[in-house]
C-alpha cells in the first residue's frame, strides 16, 4: 500500500489548522468584547437601551450561524464594503457569538441580588469597591462556565467558514480529498476527516473540561 499521500495531506491540514485557529481567535475576541459590552448595557436604567440589547440578542440567537456568514459575505460588498472571506467570517462569527456571550454576561450580572450591593454600601464601601470586591467577582464566577462553553461553540462554528471559501482545516481537508479522488482510486476521505475530527476534539475537549471545572467551582 502506498503511503506517500500522507505527507502532503498532513502539511496541508496543518496550514488549514493555523487558519482555523486564527479565525477562532479573532472571532472569540470580537464576540467577547462585543458580547460583554452589549450584555452590560442590559443593566442600564434606560428602557430603550435595554430593548435594543434584547433585540440584538434575540435576533442573532435566532439565526443559524451559517446564514449570518453567508449574509455578511454577500451583503457587505453590496453596501460597498469589500471584504475577503476571512474578514467576513470573523465579523459573522463574532456577531453571532457575541449574542450568546451577551446573554451569559447579562444573566451573570442579573443573578447577583441587588441586596449584595446594598450590604456593601451599608458597610461604607464606595461604589467602585462594591463593584470590584463584591459584584464583579460574583458575576465573573457565573459568567465563566457558559462563556467557556460558548468558546467551544465558536470554534466548532469556524468550520463553516469553508463555505465562503476560507481554507480552514475543513476546507483544506476537502481540497485534499478531491485531489486524491481525482488522482487515484482512494480519496482516503474517512481517514482525513478522522484527522480533522481528532483535531477539533483535541482543541475543544480541554475547554469542555475547563467549563465543567468552573461549573463545579461555582458551587461553593
Amino acid at each position: 500500500m502506498n503511503e506517500a499521500w500522507i505527507g502532503p495531506v498532513v502539511a496541508h491540514l496543518g496550514r488549514g489548522l493555523l487558519v482555523t485557529l486564527w479565525i477562532s481567535l479573532l472571532s472569540v475576541v470580537v464576540a467577547t468584547v462585543v458580547g460583554i459590552a452589549v450584555g452590560s448595557l442590559a443593566t442600564s436604567p434606560k428602557p430603550a437601551l435595554r430593548a435594543v440589547v434584547r433585540g440584538y440578542v434575540t435576533l442573532f440567537r435566532g439565526i443559524p450561524s451559517l446564514l449570518i456568514l453567508l449574509c455578511v459575505f454577500f451583503a457587505l460588498p453590496q453596501i460597498g464594503l469589500a471584504t475577503g472571506p476571512l474578514t467576513a467570517s470573523v465579523i459573522g462569527l463574532g456577531l453571532w457569538g457575541s449574542a450568546n456571550i451577551a446573554e451569559a454576561a447579562r444573566g451573570a450580572l442579573f443573578s447577583i441580588s441587588p441586596h449584595q450591593g446594598e450590604a456593601a454600601r451599608a458597610l461604607g464601601m464606595s461604589a467602585r469597591a462594591t463593584l470590584r470586591d463584591v459584584l464583579l467577582p460574583q458575576a465573573a464566577r457565573r459568567f465563566l462556565p457558559p462563556y467557556i462553553g460558548q468558546l467551544t461553540v465558536l470554534i466548532h462554528a469556524s468550520a463553516l467558514t469553508s463555505v465562503v471559501g476560507v481554507s480552514d482545516i475543513l476546507g483544506s481537508a476537502r481540497q485534499m480529498i478531491e485531489r486524491l479522488a481525482y488522482m487515484g482510486p482512494d480519496s482516503h476521505a474517512i481517514l482525513i476527516y478522522g484527522m480533522v475530527l481528532a483535531v477539533f476534539f483535541a482543541i475543544c475537549y480541554p475547554l469542555t473540561l475547563l467549563a465543567d471545572y468552573a461549573e463545579r467551582r461555582l458551587r461553593v
Partner: peptide, 16 residues
C-alpha cells in the same frame, strides 16, 4: 454609612 451598621432580613453575606 461607616458609622451606621445595618443588618438585613436576608443576611446578605458575601457568598464568595
Amino acid at each position: 454609612r461607616e458609622h451606621v451598621g445595618m443588618v438585613f432580613q436576608s443576611y446578605n453575606l458575601f457568598p464568595h
